[in-house]
Design a binder for these strands. Structure first.
Lengths: 154, 154
DNA sequence: CAAATTATGATATATCATATCATTTCAATA
DNA sequence: TATTGAAATGATATGATATATCATAATTTG
C-alpha cells in the first residue's frame, strides 16, 4: 500500500521467480502490477476489472484466481482472509527473507499496512499456543482498526 | 467445540439475554443449539440445513444470517473470518467476562479451540501496534495449524 | 518438431452474503 | 382487551466470492 517503486519491485519479483524456477508470465506480471498500483486490497473480480482497464484485454476471473494462487505461492501476493481481498506483498524488494506477514487493516479507508511484528512477540504467541498442544501453520495476523489518518478525521 | 453441557449453556444464554434486555426467541435458541452441538464451525447455509433437520421446519438462510448477527452481537456466537463459518462461543457458561476471542483452527479436522491468550501478550501486541500509530478495534486472532490429534495422525 | 508440461480460456455452478419489502409476533399501554 | 408500534421473521431477488472441469494455447524439453 505504501509508495513503492513498481519497476524495482517487478525486477525483484522476476529475479525471485527465476531463482525458484517458476514462470512469471506477462499476465501474471500484469496482475501483480495491478495490485502494486492499487491503493487498497482488491477482490479477484476487481482485479479482473483493473486488468481490463490496464491492458484493454479481457481476462476471465477464473484465470485471475489461478494467477493469484501462483503469486501467493511465491509470496508475491497475500490474501486477507478477513475480507476476501488480495494485496501485493510489501516486502518483495526487501532483501531480508520473508517473515510471516502481519496486517493492520483500516476499517475506514481500507488501506492496509503490512508490518513486521516483533519477533519476540510472535515467538511468545507461538509458545502460548504450544501450551495448547497446537502446531501453528503460519501465524498470519489480520488486525482491524483505524489508521493514523482516519483516527484524526474522526 | 469442546464437550459442553448444552442445557447449562442455554440457561446462561437466556439469563444473559434477559439481563441485556434482548429477546432470545425460540428460533434464535435453535440456531445456538445447532452450533453448540456441531463438531466444527458451520456456514450459514449448513446451519440452515441443520436447523431443518432438528426442527423439521424450513428456515430461510436470510433469517439464519439475521439470527447469527443477533447471537454475535450478544457474544454468544463468533464468526471465523478466515473460513466464513460460525461457532458458538466457548465461554457462554463461564462467569468471567468475555475477552476478545482467539481461535486455534485445525486445518485437518476443522475443529476449533477457543483459547484465552495471555493478556500480557495481547497487551504487548497492542503496544507494538500503537507504535505504528494504529488504533486497534478488536484483536480477534485466528490461527491455523494442526490440533494435537491430527499431529499424531500425520 | 513432437511430446509433455504448464498456462490460460470458457462455461457452469457452488457457496457466501446482503438489499428490500411484506408479514407476523409480541409487548406496551390506552 | 383492543390498538398500535416495534421487533422479528419470511419471501424474493440479486450480488459477490470461489471452485470444478474440460478445452485450447503456449512453452519447454528431448
Amino acid at each position: 500500500m505504501a509508495k513503492v517503486d513498481t519497476n524495482k519491485v517487478m525486477q525483484q519479483a522476476e529475479r525471485s521467480c527465476v531463482e525458484h524456477g517458476v514462470r512469471l508470465t506477462s499476465k501474471r506480471k500484469h496482475i501483480l502490477e495491478v495490485l502494486l498500483n492499487a491503493q487498497a486490497p482488491r477482490s479477484a473480480y476487481e482485479i479482473a476489472d483493473l486488468y481490463r482497464q490496464k491492458t484493454e484485454e479481457n481476462i476471465p476471473v477464473m484465470s485471475v484466481y489461478r494467477m493469484l494462487d501462483f503469486l501467493m505461492q511465491n509470496s508475491l501476493v497475500h490474501k486477507l482472509a478477513s475480507n476476501n481481498k488480495f494485496i501485493a506483498c510489501a516486502h518483495i524488494a526487501c532483501s531480508h527473507s520473508h517473515q510471516t506477514p502481519q496486517f493492520l487493516i483500516c476499517d475506514n479507508c481500507q488501506q492496509v499496512r503490512e508490518i513486521g511484528v516483533d519477533k519476540q512477540l510472535i515467538h511468545a504467541l507461538e509458545e502460548s499456543i504450544e501450551h495448547n498442544h497446537f502446531q501453528l501453520n503460519s501465524p498470519q495476523l489480520e488486525l482491524h482498526g483505524l489508521c493514523e489518518t482516519c483516527q484524526q478525521d474522526s
